[in-house]
Structures are given as C-alpha cells and as structure tokens.
Design a protein around this nucleic acid. Sequence first.
DNA 1: GTGAAAGCGCTAACAT
DNA 2: ATGTTAGCGCTTTCAC
Lengths: 334, 334
Amino acid sequence: MAETEVSRAAGVGVATVSRALAPDPHPDVSAAKRERVREAADLLRYRPSGAARALRTGAYHALSIVLPDDAWGWWEPTVRSSFLAAAEEGHHVLVHPIGGRTGGAATAVDSLADVPTDGVLLFGSANDDDVLRASNRLRLPVVTIDDVNENVLFPTLSVDNRAGAQAACEHLIASARRRIVYVGTGSASELFVRERFAGYRDALTAAGLAWDERLVVQSPEAADESIVTLSGVSQLIITGVRFDAVFCEYDLLAAPLLRTLRLAGLRVPEDVAVVGFDDERAAQLLDPQLTTMRQPYGELGHRAVELLLDRIRGNAPTVGRQLIRPTLVQRHSG
Amino acid sequence: MAETEVSRAAGVGVATVSRALAPDPHPDVSAAKRERVREAADLLRYRPSGAARALRTGAYHALSIVLPDDAWGWWEPTVRSSFLAAAEEGHHVLVHPIGGRTGGAATAVDSLADVPTDGVLLFGSANDDDVLRASNRLRLPVVTIDDVNENVLFPTLSVDNRAGAQAACEHLIASARRRIVYVGTGSASELFVRERFAGYRDALTAAGLAWDERLVVQSPEAADESIVTLSGVSQLIITGVRFDAVFCEYDLLAAPLLRTLRLAGLRVPEDVAVVGFDDERAAQLLDPQLTTMRQPYGELGHRAVELLLDRIRGNAPTVGRQLIRPTLVQRHSG
DNA sequence: GTGAAAGCGCTAACAT
DNA sequence: ATGTTAGCGCTTTCAC
C-alpha cells in the first residue's frame, strides 16, 4: 500500500498524505483533511516505507549497538536502557554481536558499511585504532561505554570505579571493620581493576588504617566463573591472618568467596562483612544476599544514547571519558 | 558517495558497480572490472545505501525481536543466538523492548508499522489476539518463543518442559533418591509450570514411587527474587516430613531453597539432592553449584530465526508448537 | 492549505 | 559481459 493509493482513496494529493502522516505531523494540514487521510490509511492498512523515507531524508533514525561476545553479562540492563532512550528519541536500535569475527570490534564496525544505521554505540574497545579508522571510513559516529581501556579515542562513558570502590570500603569502615581484605583477579591490564584497587587504598588511607600487604589476595584462577573456592583466601585463614571484611573486585567473585568463608566456619556478616561491585543479578541470589555497589546501568545507557545522538546531529565530538558514580545497595552480607 | 560517482571513477556503468558490489556478487562481471570497481569504491569510501537497496528490492533483510521488560531475562542467550543465526542469513536484527507500553506486546508490534523490518520474533504472548491482528494488519509475519501460554496463534518454539522435568527427577531417582520434594510457585496459569509439575509426576509414576501430597511445596511468595528462605520447606522440615531430594520448578528458586536447607543443618547433596531447571547463569554461582536442566537456548534462537525466515519467504505458516528438549547439566547439588 | 513534479540511490529488465 | 533506463515510495521545493 503505497502513499499514492492512500491519496487516491482520500481524494487528496500525495503531498498531503505525506504531510498528514509524517512522524512529526506537518502543521499546514487542515484537521479535516488529516482525519480523512488517516481513515483512508487505516482502511488500506497503509504502512509507510521506512526505506523510501530514509532514502529521501538521508537519515535512518537508527542506532547500532555493537556487543562483545560475552556481552549481556553485567551490562544487559545498560543495553535495555539504551533501547528505551533511543525509542524516546524516535530511533530504532540494531544489535550486532561481534560474534567471533577475527578482527573483533573493528571488523564488526566495518561490516556496518551496508547496515542502515546512523551511529554506533560500542561496548569496550574505546582505544581501538582500527575501530577509529573504520568509523572514519564509514563516516559513522561512534560512542563507547568502556572502563577497561585507559586511553580512549571516542566520547566514552565509564563508571567511576575508584570512587565506587572507596565508597564500598568506607561503608565497611563505617561499620567498624578495620582489617579489610581485597579480593581480585590481579588482571591489572584492565583499567577498572586498577581503579577499584586504588579506591580500596584511598579508603584505607583516608581512614588512617594500617596497610597490610597480606590482605591483598589476587586469584587469577577466579576468572573462571565455575571455580568453587578461592585458595588465596583459604590460605589467609589457614595462616591465621586476621580480617573482618572483604571487598570483592566484582560480584561474581563473591560466590566462591562466600563458599570459602563458610567452609572455614566464618559467619557472614558477623565474622566477616562482604561487599561486592556491580550489582549483577546474581548478587541477591547469593547467600547471604550481597551488599554491593550498583553500576549506574540505566544512566549509562541513557547518556550514551544522548551522546551519540549529539554526535549524529553534527555536534563536536568530545573525545574523552565521562564518569558516572555507582551507588551502594545494602543487603545482608555487610 | 553514491554509486554514480564510483561508476564514474571506475569508468564503468552504474549497473556494473551494482553487480560487482552486490551482497551476493553477480556472476556476470569480469574479475578485472570487479577489482577496478572495488578499488574505486574503497578510495571514495563508498557506502551503499541500505535505504535505496531496500526500496528497490522490497526487502529490508532485517528481523525484529520484541522483548518483555524484565530487566534480567532468562532469554538473553537465546536472543544472542538469534543474532548470530540472523547474521548468517544476511539479516540485521532490531530489538524492541515492550517497554511498559500500555497494551503490551500488541502495541509493540503495532508500532512496528514504520520500522524497516521483514518479520517479528516475539518472546511470549503466543496466544495474544491483538498481536495476531497487528501482525495481519501490517502483513508482518510473527514467530514466538513461548512456554507460558497453552494456545498458540503463531508458529511457536518451546522447551519440552514435561520431558525435561521428568528427566531431572529420573536423575534423582537414579541416584537412589526416593522422597522427592517439588518446590514451585503454584502459578498454575503458566503452561511451563503445569508441564514441569506433570513431568515430576511422570517420573514418580514411572519409577513406582509412592505419591505423597505433602512433598509438593508451593511458595507463591518466591516469585519475589529477593526472598531469603522458603517457609514451606522450613515447615516441612519442622513437621518432620522426611525427604532426600528437591526438584525446583526453576533455578532461581534454588537460591532461597539452599539457604533454607542450610539453616536446617541439612547438607546438599549428602542429605538432600537438589536439581533445578533452566541453567541460568546464576546456577553455577549457587553453593553448591546447581545441577539443572539446561534450556536449549542456542537451538531456540537458531530455530526461531529459521522459522521466521521461512515465513518471510512465503512458506506456509505452520501455526503450532515445536518442542525442544533440555539437557541435564550435572554439577554439585545432586 | 494543497497539488504537481523532481529526485534521493539503487537494481532489474532490456538492449547490445 | 556491460551500458542505458525506468521506477521503487517517499519528502520537498515550487506554484497556486
């Protein structure tokens, strides 16, 4: 059902149909005619051609989200809020998993050449030269959400991991904990890891607590989610190093950590308070339910879309990082 | 950079450019010319217009996925495998969260009127008259993934919940468990709930185990994920009803269940074996890691896309349900 | 306030 | 094997 047929049925010109049915309806159409057109369109079950529209106007009103392969881990809700934000602005959203392509994100962006899209929201890869090249080649603006890479080549949104970690530890300190263990994977190549560790130190320093190297437990093996316990923590307990709290680099570490503490007969939070970071869905399934820093998922998605639309509208690309603070969610572990 | 300019730069006609650069390149182009065209296109950073292409061919080569609103969906991996399957078939994927629209899925489908898409993959709502109407109105084929509604109006994919539940319980029986508790939410309006319960009974019957009504524990309050323990199970223990295994209607129930058992001093799996259903990501974060029936996420997504493409290509719409069997994943809870 | 007509960039039919 | 041309369905001047 093309516009022509609606115009014929309504007894008006095609231009009037177009004006009456435009996304933001044209003011120069009399209410009467608009009504006539709408009726005819309904009757004919007219469906405007997005293709013709896009061809004519040069804008797809569509955004692309490029996801790494493990993507809908913690940021699923961020993707969701992007959808909502985009919809509010009248844009569709296409989702493209990188999907094991050799070349990673850059290849994925490259393959957007024949995708009807106006811009790209990329998770991670904020420092990827090849993505920048692809972006320039296709004249496709890119915005990233990334807290892994230090140097960024695009407008980038990140969680304020340092402030978040500090807040988490300060919460522990406020409930009279003095010997706080830091549990991490030791993968210092990732920015968020360094930042969270820095936040931990910030909190201890600010509170004037003594620094004890032994309280820093790095468990590279915990990168495997299916791990059962954290040997580093068992070690600590066996060696008799005293501690009354643990800050987990991220929520998923809390699962093996809690098993380890339980095995050792330590009660949470009575003997040891535990705080995580992320507020993944899993956080409240753990036993006890995990107190944690919640990622600002919703805000991340919303602001990313706004940033991207800004760029699409031709505004200056402010390359650089914008930080958003996470918030404490208190549950039962500390 | 339109095709014309590439044709000019390469010194060939537009048709040749079109043929050389088509998604599935036309055979009738000499290798030499194709190379010339490609080079010119690269140089000019030519990007084909998806709009013009779609306008001309009448196909968007795009599918839409309509998602319910729950923040953390169990279907996440299914959506991912749909992306991959669609990409393999040269289709883009648009994602549309229902997003609190009044009217739910039907309104969401309705609003696809001006979305450049060829078909819809809908999670849930397989029995929704209004969706059917919208689908007809827009002449947009719909395929659903749904195991909540009994009557389906579209080609529908479902997990074989009954066979799955039976397999789960048979696994328990095979390890010499004889008194198996069924823990559910009692929301019998949902098909998968009835089916899983039926599968439980099937298994008991097949094994010739006595039926004990007291072993069926319905905990409506567990619909709230943040619940800590299951009072129905505590009750059972207090009352002195003996049992040596629990089948959970779905994985998330295992979190409060395991807390309840632990509180009562029961060891898992020594005293009580526990098996869940879904194999959500959370399953292996529980303590002990949960043995469960894994939803066939990948197959669900792949087959749904194939089904949809089939319909788009004009093949007969086989309204009705297709079942896919889940598989047992043995971990440490039973 | 409304209509007539041009043209967005591509592909397919036809001609060579 | 390649060039020429018409036209997909819309929006946007430009008339009136």
